[in-house]
Amino acid sequence: MTGNQGRWPKIDPDSGIEDVTLLILEWLGAQGVNALIRMDAERAAENAPAWTFAASGGPLEHGMRADGRTVQQCMSTALSQLREAGLSVPF
Rank of each mutant, 00 (worst) to 15 (best):
I11N: 04
L82A: 09
S76E: 14
L25D: 06
A50Y: 01
G6Y: 03
Q5L: 06
A35L: 05
P49H: 12
D14M: 08
I37K: 07
H62N: 15
A78H: 04
L60Y: 01
P59F: 04
E84C: 09
N47M: 08
A78E: 05
E84L: 11
E42N: 15
A35R: 01
V89F: 07
T21C: 14
L25Q: 08
P90L: 03
A78W: 03
Q5R: 13
A85S: 11
M64Q: 09
H62L: 12
S88D: 13
S88I: 12
L87W: 03
V20I: 10
Q72W: 14
D12F: 04
G3F: 05
S15F: 10
R69L: 14
W51Y: 15
A35N: 00
S15R: 13
V89I: 10
W27M: 01
A45G: 15
T70C: 02
G86V: 05
D19N: 08
N4C: 12
A41P: 09
L23Q: 13
A54I: 07
P9V: 00
E26C: 04
T2Y: 10
P90I: 02
P9D: 09
I17P: 07
M39R: 15
I24K: 00
L87R: 06
D67Q: 11
G3C: 08
R43P: 12
D14P: 01
I17R: 07
G63Q: 04
A66D: 05
V20S: 06
D67C: 13
A30N: 15
T21W: 10
V20K: 00
D40V: 03
S56T: 04
N34H: 05
M1K: 07
E26N: 09
S76A: 14
N47D: 14
P9C: 06
T21Y: 04
D19W: 06
L28F: 09
S80I: 09
S76M: 14
F53S: 01
G63W: 02
A54R: 14
L87V: 04
R7T: 07
E61V: 14
A48I: 07
A44N: 11
R69M: 09
P49F: 01
A35T: 01
G86H: 02
V33A: 02
T52I: 11
M64A: 05
T2I: 13
G58M: 10
L23I: 10
I37N: 12
T77C: 14
G3S: 06
G32F: 03
L60Q: 00
M1C: 14
L60H: 05
M75Y: 06
Q5S: 12
D19S: 15
G57N: 04
M1Q: 11
R69Y: 12
L36W: 11
V71S: 07
W51V: 01
G29A: 10
L28P: 02
A54M: 13
G57A: 07
L23F: 10
D12Y: 10
A50C: 11
N34K: 08
R38V: 15
A41D: 15
W51N: 02
S88N: 14
R69C: 02
A44V: 12
N4P: 01
W27C: 00
R65A: 07
A41L: 15
Q81E: 11
P9Y: 02
E18F: 06
V20H: 00
L23E: 10
R69E: 10
M1H: 09
W27Q: 03
L79W: 04
